[in-house]
Design a protein around this nucleic acid. Structure first.
Lengths: 244, 244
DNA sequence: CGATTAACGATAATCGATTTTTTGGAGGTT
DNA sequence: AACCTCCAAAAAATCGATTATCGTTAATCG
């Protein structure tokens, strides 16, 4: 019968790159293009959290019809970057410390459990992917130290790939999907606060330890380090209390 | 500044009832109404997994314009019940044993971690909600034994409320949201297989044990029982191998 | 003077028509 | 038989205009 197997061309949430930098080919439709541009603007903070998304404005700004804008926005509801209220339009998802904490706890639940399983059952393919992702990230870590502004997009990609590689051995599509959503949102917080956290805590050292414990197949240790890694990034934000 | 605090009227995924039976008030717009009807049909299997969702058909069937259908569909992408492919339309999310397993594992990661925390930090309000939800479920468990067909919707609600109560003490909105999504999908599988699993394994007994360990504040035990509870429901499906 | 209602302007929701894109052959070529 | 190319039907994407709804301000009433 009919079993389309959900190809990579499915739109909506895309598992392969959710944030600003998208490796996906050229947009295949206006809707997709508008959706992508909106997503970037939201993640980058051009459209500020909580603000209203007026169809008319967007329609003029992107030079498309209202219906197209509406549909792009509806699709963006999928990854929670946009909220829709009946008869009152669309809004950029608000940001708050509470939201960030929820984001973080949920991420920990999913990612730590996944990494535990991956470390246990990962094969050689998993291992080599992980090694590759790690060295790429190590390179990016250095670059971003020098010129934070230029290299930030690249670092985001490398970071995402590293974390994805860690859990790629045996995680379900659903887990990937949710983590992708969480990561878009967390990226938004990172971009908001990154100008203020320049002399970054030693993220690189944390990554290295996680990487080593993964290769050493110490599932519990790896999971624990990962948890601390994820938690510590939120405490940086909390210190600056940029939110509310 | 602008902080709309995301009221309960937000559409898209709704945390309060995701499946067939929705306690939400009357739909406030055509889009919402179409969205809800489509969601029901998909969850109940009227629209079969993997099948194509033709705008023209739906438009005629629901007596609304194509644009309205498109937007309802776009919104349904949010909870993964509908997939959108650029220039090729919309599809009902496919079902497979693999998907079910992913759903289950992801649910376990989220729900078991959450219940652990809830049992630890739940106050008296949490406790009384849980007691209420449990007795409601116990009642439904009995009813559904007698006439499975009539009472199934009601049981789904009671079941959902019980599981939600368990973790309600300190779970984030994100966790709730994701669990709501997973539950819609799992409900679809339950409805698909429930005719074949009539003499249900003793679900009630499982719920009771979980309930008791929660009240006894035995977080680890509760989490473990919950994990087994969730796992065992998938193995039922696996036996019947209804999928693929 | 406070409260209730009426009228208005802004904006979301909806539709029907038009334009592209995809799909599934029919026929012809190697 | 496998592989193109071209064509027409089907379907999705897109638009511009119309209608319904909300929130606010102005007017009215007790």
């Amino acid at each position: 019968m009919n079993q389309p197997a959900l190809g990579k061309e499915a739109i909506g949430i895309d598992l392969f790159a959710a944030g600003v930098a998208s490796p996906k080919g050229k947009p295949r439709s206006l809707i997709e293009s508008v959706m992508h541009r909106l997503r970037c603007e939201i993640v980058q903070g051009v459209l500020s959290a909580g603000s209203r998304l007026l169809i008319d404005d967007l329609q003029r700004r992107f030079d498309v019809s209202g219906g197209t804008v509406r549909e792009a926005l509806s699709l963006l509801v999928s990854d929670g970057l946009v909220h829709a209220k009946t008869q009152r339009g669309f809004f950029v998802a608000p940001m708050s410390l509470q939201d960030l904490e929820g984001l973080t706890r949920t991420r920990i639940a999913l990612e730590c459990e996944s990494v535990r399983e991956s470390v246990k059952c990962g094969g050689s393919e998993w291992e080599s992917n992980l090694v590759a992702a790690y060295s790429e990230l190590a390179r990016s870590d250095e670059h971003v130290m020098r010129n934070p502004d230029d290299e930030f997009d690249q670092w985001e990609i490398a970071n995402r790939n590293f974390h994805r590689s860690l859990i790629s051995a045996c995680s379900s599509d659903w887990t990937f999907r949710f983590l992708a959503v969480l990561n878009i949102h967390l990226e938004r917080y990172r971009r908001l606060t990154s100008p203020h956290t320049l002399p970054e805590r030693n993220v690189h050292a944390e990554h290295e330890l996680i990487f080593q414990s993964a290769l050493a197949r110490d599932a519990e240790q790896c999971s624990l380090l990962l948890r601390q890694h994820i938690e510590s990034s939120v405490s940086v934000v909390r210190q600056f209390a940029l939110l509310r």
